[in-house]
Write a protein that binds this DNA or RNA. Structure first.
Lengths: 152, 152
DNA sequence: TATTGTTATACTCTATAACTATA
DNA sequence: TATAGTTATAGAGTATAACAATA
């Protein structure tokens, strides 16, 4: 019938929004919001990404992201440059301050991951992460799946 | 250092928000939003829950939920009654129309779960769901964990 | 014509706090 | 005094579409 206690989207949303809400409160003391943190981590992972790539990686809407980047630029965390090879595209780079802030917050982020995974063996942790990856990739097979501008 | 590709909150958010965004678009054709759907499922699971319990179960803020319920009431999906035993509390019940709509949407919801879990064995599916449950419960151990009104 | 990003709009969600009414 | 829910407000986020610049 659809049992809530074993309904995947419910379990996923509940765990995800719980971690997000708690961590969001935590990063506030660093003067940033959760979306800003997501952009910082994404850029730390790979600097100089284009806005569209960043939107994909952070799961933030492009139009929202554009204004998040405005804010981050005002805060001196990132810089934007149009690409020489295709000047429609804009590459986003961490500033020194942005990289430094990201590194300062990382231990906190790690501690949240560790707390969330309390009682998980290394093997279980790997299994869980691999499964979340598979879930995400499966979503592309959905008939209703429609990336924002690509096939709309 | 914190590798994005294996950072749990990232993987969780990415999978969760992807399913949520896709399903949100899908339920729109039934005239409802994702939060409304979450309330419907939660009430179908257990009818007559109090507003606070619903907020917990749906991961929707109490103040947001209050207005979502206003909308649902106008749409004729739910009814609210103060409890006889404690008239501070409000119990929320599905109407016949609410229950009927929920049942009509359920096959679609199931199909999303099935698509997300494509390639997962029954055992893997059970493992994943159990792990998401453990994750959620672990969050209560966080030092920063603070349920909204309880210990703030 | 299609694509990338920005901007505009209206709506929704969140966070906080004030408020009402109960307990 | 504390609790349950509603209401108010400001600040973010989302969805859509229009727009400018470029390809």
């Amino acid at each position: 019938m659809l049992d809530l206690a074993s309904y995947l989207p419910y379990l996923l949303n509940r765990a995800g929004s719980r971690i997000a809400a708690d961590f969001s409160r935590a990063v506030k003391s660093y003067g940033i919001t959760l979306p800003v943190w997501r952009v910082l981590v994404a850029l730390h992972h790979q600097n100089g990404q284009r806005v569209g790539e960043l939107a994909e990686l952070t799961a933030i809407e492009v139009s929202t992201l554009s204004r998040v980047l405005d804010l981050m630029q005002r805060q001196g965390l990132v810089k934007r440059h149009r690409l020489a090879t295709d000047s429609r595209s804009v590459a986003v780079h961490l500033t020194v301050a942005g990289r430094s802030l990201t590194r300062r917050i990382m231990p906190l982020a790690q501690s949240y991951e560790t707390a969330a995974l309390a009682g998980f063996s290394a093997a279980e942790t790997m299994t869980l992460k691999a499964m979340l990856q598979r879930l995400y990739l499966n979503m592309d097979r959905l008939p209703a799946a429609r990336r924002l501008r690509r096939s709309a």
